[in-house]
Amino acid sequence: MARDRSPAELVGAAPDAAFEITFDGRPITALPGQSLAAALWAAGILAWRTTRVGGRPRGAFCGIGHCFDCLATVNGEPNRRACLVPARPGDAVTTQEGHGHDDLAVR
C-alpha cells in the first residue's frame, strides 16, 4: 500500500513557530492556526471531556462547531468548543467533567 505523506507535507506547510499548551497539566505542542481540538488530536488525544450522566469520555465529533461534544475547560472557563477555539501559547486545557460548573453548586 502506497503511503503518500503527512497532511502538512501534502499542502506544503511551513508553519510559524510551534508553541506549548497543556492538557491536564502535561505539555503538548500546538501549531499556530490550529484549533485546540486539532492540537489535541495531533498529540494523540481523542477525549477531553466526560459526560454529565454516564461519565463517559468524549472529544471532537462533528469538527465544525455543531455537536458540542468537544467542550473543554480552557484556562478555567468551561464549555469552550475546542474545535473552534484557536490554540494560543500557554493555553491550559483541562478535562471537563460533566457540565463543568461544579464550583457553582449549592446544596
Partner: peptide, 9 residues
C-alpha cells in the same frame, strides 16, 4: 440555559 448544577433551589 446550558446544563448547570443546582444553583437555584
Amino acid at each position: 440555559t446550558e446544563p448547570l448544577p443546582r444553583l437555584v433551589r
